[in-house]
Simulated assay, not measured.
Amino acid sequence: MSETVRGAVETDCFRLSYIVEGEGRPAIVVGSSLYYARCFSQTLRRHLRIAFMDHRGFAPGSRSTDVAQFGMEKLTADIEQVRQQLGFDRVVIIGHSGHGFMALDYARRYPEHVSHLVMLCMGADYTPAGHAAAERYLADSVCPERKAALAEAMARLPAMIEAAPEKAFVSFCLATAAKSWFDYTFDAAPLWEGIETNMAMFDHVWGKVIPDMDLAALAPDIRAPAFLGLGRYDFLVPPAHTWEPVRDRFRDLTVRVFERSSHAPMLEEPEAFDRELLDWIGSR
C-alpha cells in the first residue's frame, strides 16, 4: 500500500491538517482528519487514495469566533486548496453527517474536479421540522433499553459541558450514543482522542448555515453521480423519508440503507459498506 502522507494547508487564520492513505482512485473525506481516518477500513484504502482533511471547526489551536470565517463558500474553498496541494485531478468527495453538505457544496462549486459525490448519514431537512421528524422516529421505535440509555446519558450532558465547555460538541456526540450507534453501548471516546473543536464554528454552521441550505434547489446543480448511505437505526439526523421530496431532484442518486447500522455504516458494517460503495463507484 502507498505510504502515508501528512501535511496541512494554511487558510486565513486556520491550519487544516490532512492524512493521505491508500492507493487507487483519489478521494477526499472532509471533517476531522483524525476521526475519519479511524472510521474507514483498510480494505477501502486498497482501492482509494483517501485524503482525510480537517475543516475549520477541527483546526487545532483555532479560537476564532468570527462567523464570517465559517461560510460554506470558505469551507468548500478549503477543500479545493487541499485538492490542489495534493495534486489530485478529479476526486470522490465524501462527507458524513453535516459534512455531507460540505461535500455536496464542493461538488456544486467545483464540478470539473468531482468524479463522484458520497453523502453518508445525512438528513435532507435540518430545519426544526426535520429534527422533530428525527425525534418522532425514535419515539415511534420499540426500543425501551435504547431510550433508557439515552435518557441517562442526556441527564449527564450538562455537567459534561460545564466541566469542559470547549469539548461541548464531542460531549454531545458521546452522550447521544443511543441515537448514533446500532450497538448503543458502544464507547466512541477513542475515536475522538486528540481532537480539538471550535464551538463557534459548529454553532454557526450546524445552527445557521446547514439549516438554510435548500437541497431541492441545490440538487439539480450536481453533475456527478451521487451516493447516499443511511443507517436503519440512525436516530441522530432527520430520517430517510425526509429525502423523498428531494431525491428525484438529483440527476443520478443511488440510495443504500444499511440494516445493522446507525450513524456510521462505514465503521459499523465495513464489509457491506465497502462492497456497496466500491461497486457503485465501479459502475459509474
Rank of each mutant, 00 (worst) to 15 (best):
Y126V: 10
F14M: 05
T242H: 08
R256Q: 10
R284N: 11
C13I: 11
A8Q: 15
D125P: 01
D252R: 11
E80T: 07
D252W: 04
E135T: 10
R146V: 02
L157I: 06
G71C: 13
D279P: 02
F182Y: 15
L16G: 01
G31S: 07
R232D: 09
W243R: 08
G194W: 10
A129Q: 13
G100P: 07
R109L: 02
C121Q: 14
G71A: 10
A8L: 13
I19H: 01
M1L: 13
C121L: 13
L138V: 06
D105G: 12
C13D: 14
W181K: 11
E166W: 03
Q69F: 13
G24F: 04
Y137H: 14
A151C: 07
D187Q: 04
S32F: 04
A129M: 08
A219F: 07
S64I: 07
D274K: 06
G98R: 01
H204A: 10
T197L: 06
D125E: 09
D187G: 03
F101D: 06
E152M: 12
V209W: 07
L278C: 06
R275K: 14
L215K: 02
N198H: 08
Y137Q: 08
A151I: 05
F70G: 01
D183W: 13
T254Q: 14
S17L: 15
A175V: 04
C173T: 07
G229Q: 01
G22C: 03
L75R: 09
L228P: 05
D203C: 06
F227R: 03
K147D: 09
Y106C: 05
M1G: 14
D125M: 07
R45P: 00
T4L: 10
L228E: 09
V20E: 09
D248K: 12
C13N: 12
A164I: 03
M122W: 00
E152D: 15
Q85T: 14
H55R: 11
T242P: 07
D221G: 13
S180K: 12
E268Y: 08
R90C: 02
A272G: 05
F235T: 05
F186I: 02
A159H: 14
M122L: 11
S17V: 13
E80G: 02
P245E: 01
N198R: 06
E73Y: 00
G130C: 04
L150S: 15
T197A: 08
M199N: 14
L34M: 13
Y184K: 00
R49A: 07
S283E: 04
L228T: 07
D78I: 01
R256L: 03
P26R: 04
I93W: 01
V29L: 07
I161R: 15
T176A: 15
F172I: 08
D89H: 02
A132D: 15
I28K: 00
L230Y: 05
G100C: 12
T4K: 12
F202I: 11
L277A: 03
F58C: 09
R90D: 01
E244K: 09
F250A: 03
Y184R: 07
P265E: 05
G57H: 01
T176M: 00
T76I: 13
G130N: 08
D214V: 13
E268H: 09
R232Q: 13
V237C: 12
E196H: 13
A178K: 04
F58A: 08
Q84E: 10
R232H: 14
P225Q: 10
A224W: 00
A124E: 02
H241F: 15
E80V: 04
Y35H: 12
W192I: 01
V91C: 01
S2M: 12
G95R: 02
L236I: 05
